[in-house]
Write a protein that binds this DNA or RNA. Structure first.
Lengths: 344, 344
DNA sequence: TATCTTTGCGTAATCGATTACATTAAGATA
DNA sequence: TATCTTAATGTAATCGATTACGCAAAGATA
């Protein structure tokens, strides 16, 4: 095992002090060119590497940030993290991943661990279960940037990057209306969560704006799973009058919806136009590609990281509180593209 | 901004020294029960948290590990990371993510950065481009556990966790043979990579074992993309005699294959039985679910982490070199399940 | 020549925790 | 009472880097 080379080792070799070595390596102007060159040469020769841990202890900056998500094996979160990483890597930051599975205890635990590890910032998609704001306040009190993405909580001095779920719901519904659908049902998620409530509200508003009746019976709450979508479909096809379109808050539910509709002999998009939400990879790989609302996760990650960098560069006096709301993009695919000749 | 509480702050409050506080907090038996209780109480009252950075500098252990993957927004890698994380989190380790996009420079860069950050271990899916073994040797020389997963390189003292790609290729092909296919084509990946070469060899061996002719014309090299699979399909359907099955090294290519076959009026699985590789989420969401070979990424991550923990717990003298080869699981789905009545 | 600047580098403190070694005081033993 | 244990705590070094402050030598100025 080769011993770690420190600035003291270099200093000893050159008969100077560690302070001089440190200054030379940091391009301090008070060091003569001769000495600087000697040091740089010797450092290279000895294969010296700066010990970031020692630096972190001295400076208080670890150049690590923590990202807290429910789980990383979900395309959406993996892509947000990719965006964060892509943006921060050139600035020398490392990204530490924490998973919570949306358990409140796990969220508190992870925050605690990240604070002990002295991260320079924490990015978080906060669960609905997390009511312990005191834990979050510990972050603020330490003056460590906390930034919410995707799912947020209102807190003074805390920035957030979210998408406009209302607009997403509105756009999806408007698209269905404009392509001729009159009786549009909605697969809603858990409406105690603001993201699902907002999508639902957008749906409702679009109906009103275009003078279509809103009927609570056309709204079916369902989980974000294929099976749940299939079950919901069985309720859907019992409706009278039968809808001619569905806006689903979840792509997975939309997949289940399509499976079950086909099994029951319905044609898509001719009998039912369908728009999902999230632009999960599966939507574009299906034989019948599914229209969906893209949440721009890459941009979300990038933006989150950018706000963090701004915050780090600003003086400590100035508290930045940015509320960025990204515009979702409607992606029209086959599941909502009726051939004109088949239009009923 | 609340100041950080240190053991010195506690010591001052109690009129004792930091050494005593440290010992009390670490359950050192030479500390009297009275003092210990006083310290613990005061620590709680002042909301003391151990500074892991200071500890890391002293102990040389950061409790951080680095994971190097080409990109994290791929289901496979995201799931491996999840496995690593799930296994290491209970032991107090944090996972730092690095993406390389399979660029050699980026791989070297990331290794360097992780070493400077003093991680306790590095887990890596190494690209084919990475020929600079000297960089990897720097890790070994520092006595930091390096563990390859998914894609490895032979190095003394380095453990690895991979799957048996040969067996995966064999199983997939054998399954097609046993369900009555006689003329099985193969979509191969880049066969300079051992994972693709092994899958190909498994395919070949299965044909030989079951007395079927191997024909190089039935092997089409293609990228792991839907579009590439579609292009390859156009070569495939020009073959004479026409194959009755395809084993694809890539699920995405299989998706393209199915799309294009259907577009050309072929029925699946009746005209073509199809098995893919990787068990990408899309394979189970398709209306026509795709048979595939699961690489057990969760187990791969878990196993990688376990080997690391073993290595950390063993004495420094003992070098552990484990080569774990996981067994892939064949998942039979609709794309290779012919109805008996339709069997040709 | 005497004094003042400037240049270049050394000294030593600091970040927060751990720990080998030293020290003190109380109780045990002869 | 004198000496020896032993329990409990203090002292100070250490991990590796940065940096305020001090100082010596060289050149500048009167």
């Amino acid at each position: 095992m080769s011993p770690r080379i420190t600035i003291y080792d270099i200093a000893r070799e050159l008969n100077i002090t560690a302070a001089t070595v440190s200054r030379a390596l940091n391009n301090n102007p008070t060091i003569s060119d001769k000495t600087r060159e000697l040091v740089l040469e010797k450092a290279k020769e000895m294969n010296y590497r700066q010990n970031k841990v020692a630096l972190a202890l001295k400076s208080g900056k670890t150049f690590n940030v923590g990202v807290i998500v429910p789980r990383i094996d979900r395309s959406f979160f993996a892509t947000v993290i990719k965006g964060i990483q892509d943006e921060l890597y050139p600035h020398g930051y490392h990204v530490i991943i924490c998973q919570t599975y949306d358990q409140k205890e796990s969220e508190i635990d992870n925050i605690d661990a990240l604070l002990n590890a002295q991260v320079d910032g924490i990015f978080m998609s906060i669960s609905n279960a997390m009511t312990e704001l005191s834990e979050l306040n510990r972050i603020i009190k330490k003056n460590i940037p906390l930034i919410f993405f995707d799912r947020k909580r209102e807190m003074p001095g805390v920035s957030s990057v979210t998408i406009n779920d209302f607009e997403g719901g509105y756009k999806a519904t408007e698209h269905l209306i404009k392509t001729g659908c009159k009786k549009i049902a909605h697969f809603a998620g858990d409406r105690t969560l603001h993201i699902y409530r907002d999508r639902f509200e957008g749906y409702k508003k679009a109906l009103l704006d275009y003078k279509l009746d809103f009927d609570e019976n056309y709204v079916i709450e369902t989980e974000s799973k294929v099976e749940a979508g299939m079950e919901a479909t069985n309720q859907l096809i019992k409706l009278n009058p039968l809808p001619d379109a569905v806006f689903s808050s979840s792509d997975f539910a939309a997949v289940g919806l399509i499976k079950e509709l086909k099994a029951n002999g319905y044609a898509i998009p001719d009998d039912f136009s369908i728009v999902g939400f999230s632009n999960e990879p599966v939507t574009q790989f299906m034989e019948l590609t599914i229209s969906s609302v893209d949440q721009t996760p890459l941009e979300m990650g990038r933006m989150t990281a950018q706000i963090f960098l701004e915050q780090m560069n600003s003086s400590n006096q100035v508290k930045i509180e940015k509320k960025v709301v990204l515009t979702p993009r409607l992606l029209v695919r086959m599941s909502s593209t009726k051939k004109v000749k088949n239009k009923k």
